[in-house]
Amino acid sequence: MSHRILVVEDDPKLGLQITQHLKEAGFEPHWLERGDAALAVEPRDYALVILDLMLPGAFGLDVLKHLRRHSDLPVLVLSAKNDTAVKVRALELGADDYVTKPFWPEELLARVTARLRRPALARNGTISFGGLELDVDGRTLKVDGAPIELTRVEFEMLLALARRPGQALSRAWLAENVLDPERDGTERTLDVHVSRLRKKLGTRGALVATVWGVGYRLDAPEGT
């Protein structure tokens, strides 16, 4: 996947800063200061667009319309006016998300990565994550190549977490969607299942992280 990011921002200092932070985060930013220049770009060259709405040369919303007409390239709008109507219009015109000024560089990067993040797609019906291989159709698990027996609840829980690695799921959601409501539908039994699951995963058990106040999450293994 391309890591080229188109930045359309008229303020020179801010544009410079955004491109620098993107570079530091490993992206290849391409910065345009004018809206009319943005109307001429080839959307296929980019993975994502960061678009300021107040631009000289063309309205940001016109650039957005132009981009949407030709591609489904993710567009992250920068909004300086904290104006609901503008945000709603931008979302209606196909913007994927927005960041309100002022923002922290990390904040912008978090929104960019969230947009570029794809749900863990099952390739050939298998989800792989940190040495775990889940066969979605066969309901089987291999840890570092070795098959591991899981109960239905344990497998469903691991699968739910593995579909969105790095993102936590709340205890209430897990209890409702993973536990067998007829046998043990309460949140309290959740911890019992998780500790059994961790034990079965062995050295990979640490991947299943407890998130304070929230629930559980499949964390990226250290060193990757």
Binding site: W104, A168, L169, V211
Partner: peptide
């Protein structure tokens, strides 16, 4: 869900700088 993620992202840099864990969860 997007609203929660935006709001959390806004405060995450300060939380990290202050040494707190700011966690969140939204349903799939």
């Amino acid at each position: 869900a997007a609203l929660v993620e935006r709001a959390v992202a806004r405060h995450a840099p300060i939380a990290r700088a202050r040494g707190l864990a700011l966690e969140h969860a939204v349903p799939p």
